[in-house]
Computed example of a mutant assay.
Amino acid sequence: MKKEQMKIIAKNILAEDTVEMVLENTYISQHAVPGQFLHVQVASKTLRRPISIADCNREKQTITIIFKRNGQGTKELASYPVGNELDVLGPIGNGFSIEQNAKTVLLVGGGIGVPPLYYLAKSLKEKGITVRCVLGFQTKKNVFYEAEFTQLGETTIVTNDGSYGEKGFVTDVLDNVGVYDCYYSCGPIVMLKALTTTLDGKKGYISLEERMGCGVGACFACVLPTKDGNSYKKICKDGPVFSVGEVSL
């Protein structure tokens, strides 16, 4: 992890209040792995904003981030023009562990938990691993990156209200995805609880979305108890990715 300046070279609106930014930086683009995040400074805020890495292009030296405009800080970040430079700490955290013997894996994302799974899906496919994806959103107007995931593997879209794709929650369609060796998931805690309960006994990894303070493990603002209750894990430093059963949700 280093403190770096990252230049905004592209910005797009993907869905309702959902912004994609492509950032240019040599160091971070060469070191980022799937599952890590950036800690972005917003001018009017004391605390940085943690944002998952959605994609990385080492040749072009770019990092793509996707975030929702759901607070004052992210709204300000979304207002920054192309050409602006961001003060960033990164890449931060432990990424996804790729199972070396896996032939087929399932990716399950919910809402803004979808972005880090895209970089993971690309990395898995490059290793010859078959990817199947289940992506959950609230409504049709919240859906993004469907085409991008479909290029990488069989993809099922689920919306809470049934306005697009399958109706319901990601756990409602798991019986239809076929056989897989392990799963990876990122999304709200309530989704991860339901998913790990439904897939009890399956090998998997989950990435947690939590509010963070310092982002480097010093402030203890994002701790979770371990499953055995004997200690705590810091999401920013020990995670954000954990093996299923490692922490208590």
Rank of each mutant, 00 (worst) to 15 (best):
Y183P: 03
Y183W: 06
Y183Q: 02
Y183L: 01
Y183A: 00
Y183V: 05
Y184M: 06
S185A: 15
S185C: 11
S185K: 11
S185L: 11
S185T: 13
S185N: 11
S185R: 10
C186S: 13
C186D: 01
G187L: 06
G187V: 01
G187Q: 02
G187D: 03
G187R: 01
G187E: 00
P188Q: 08
P188L: 04
P188F: 02
P188W: 05
I189L: 12
I189C: 09
I189Q: 15
I189F: 09
V190I: 15
V190T: 14
V190D: 13
V190F: 10
V190Q: 14
M191K: 03
M191V: 08
M191A: 04
M191G: 02
L192N: 12
L192H: 06
L192Q: 13
L192A: 09
K193H: 07
K193R: 15
K193Q: 15
K193G: 00
A194I: 09
L195W: 02
L195R: 03
L195D: 07
L195Q: 07
L195F: 07
L195V: 10
L195I: 12
T196I: 07
T196S: 15
T196M: 12
T196H: 06
T197W: 02
T197P: 02
T197I: 10
T197Q: 15
T197S: 15
T197M: 13
T198G: 00
T198K: 15
T198A: 14
L199Y: 02
L199R: 01
L199I: 09
L199A: 01
L199Q: 08
L199P: 05
D200A: 14
D200M: 10
D200T: 11
D200C: 07
D200R: 13
D200H: 13
D200G: 09
G201Y: 02
G201K: 00
K202V: 12
K202H: 09
K202E: 10
K202D: 07
K203A: 10
K203F: 05
K203V: 13
G204D: 08
G204F: 04
G204R: 06
Y205N: 04
Y205D: 02
Y205E: 15
Y205T: 03
I206D: 00
I206P: 01
S207M: 15
S207A: 13
S207I: 03
S207N: 13
L208W: 03
L208F: 14
L208A: 01
L208E: 05
E209H: 08
E209F: 00
E209A: 06
E209N: 03
E210P: 08
E210H: 12
R211W: 11
R211F: 11
R211P: 07
M212W: 06
M212A: 01
G213E: 10
G213V: 08
G213R: 01
G213C: 08
G213W: 07
C214D: 10
C214W: 01
C214K: 03
C214G: 03
G215D: 00
G215W: 01
G215E: 04
V216C: 02
V216R: 04
V216K: 04
